[in-house]
Design a protein around this nucleic acid. Structure first.
Lengths: 134, 134
DNA sequence: AACATTGGTAACTTAATGGTTACATGTTCC
DNA sequence: GGAACATGTAACCATTAAGTTACCAATGTT
């Protein structure tokens, strides 16, 4: 719906705990180098390097060459974009209107006669492997 | 750092465009059923089902049986948790203090004499395949 | 010049994901 | 009861992702 291609890269980059840890490290020590990040992992240097590169490709890290060193900086912008996506898309939820409803659903679990039923069915699912209208 | 196991599931669940789309659909039509979601995908019904199950495992969807049907509801809570994680962890950034710095780094790219250099090096990387101190 | 340091490529192995088809189970409707 | 329906399970295949080792290329240092 509101998906951009770059957003997908960001989401995928964030899907890895090690990479999130890298973001933590770099944001704690802006300007640190590849080797500095590596010291915090059991993994091989190349393993870490690939994660760093992936993060940079997603624009979550910015790197800057300085002689033989490579300085790393964390870039908040993509995460802010994601934040906007959720707050815009699910604005109602964040505003608290539906949030309360959800909490009720989660805790009580007995509003079995939910009025918000979907009845716009139009798919032909008979005997598996249907192809649907996009 | 601030990682919980459940948070990892959430991040991984969000890493797939199709699953994010499912969240969009369900949050737009709370209480819709599995089949309803399927109509919006080219994929086979089972493919979609697995994504739905994964989302439920990550607690991003809540489902409720009603006869032979399964009603789906979006659960904001995990996303709120993630939001907290970022805003807490990178609070300085969101507060705008470091954010400005980052923007400068991104736009100008010539603060080559960054004072924030990390010099706590202590790893022995000589000839690859080092094991580091955790 | 010689050598340690820092970073990067290339090629490969293994594990995880995304997706499929075929079959199974419980429900509603006649 | 029996047909159509909604959902689910099992077994499997293809692709991608994660990580490894071995080697390469600059840059500093003495």
């Amino acid at each position: 719906m509101f998906e951009t291609e770059s957003m997908d890269a960001v989401f995928r980059a964030l899907a890895h705990g090690g990479r999130r840890k890298i973001l933590d490290l770099v944001s704690a020590k802006p300007g640190c180098r590849v080797g500095d990040v590596c010291t915090h992992f059991e993994m091989s240097r190349i393993g870490v390097l690939k994660h760093i590169n992936l993060l940079e490709a997603a624009n979550l890290l910015i790197s800057e060459r300085e002689g033989r060193e490579r300085r790393l900086y964390f870039n908040v912008v993509p995460i802010q974009t994601i934040y906007e996506r959720w707050t815009t898309e699910y604005s109602g939820l964040w505003a608290g209107r539906l949030t309360r409803l959800k909490y009720e659903v989660e805790s009580t679990r007995n509003d079995s006669a939910n009025p918000n039923t979907l009845r716009d069915r139009s798919h032909r699912d008979t005997r598996d492997n249907q192809e649907q209208d996009q």
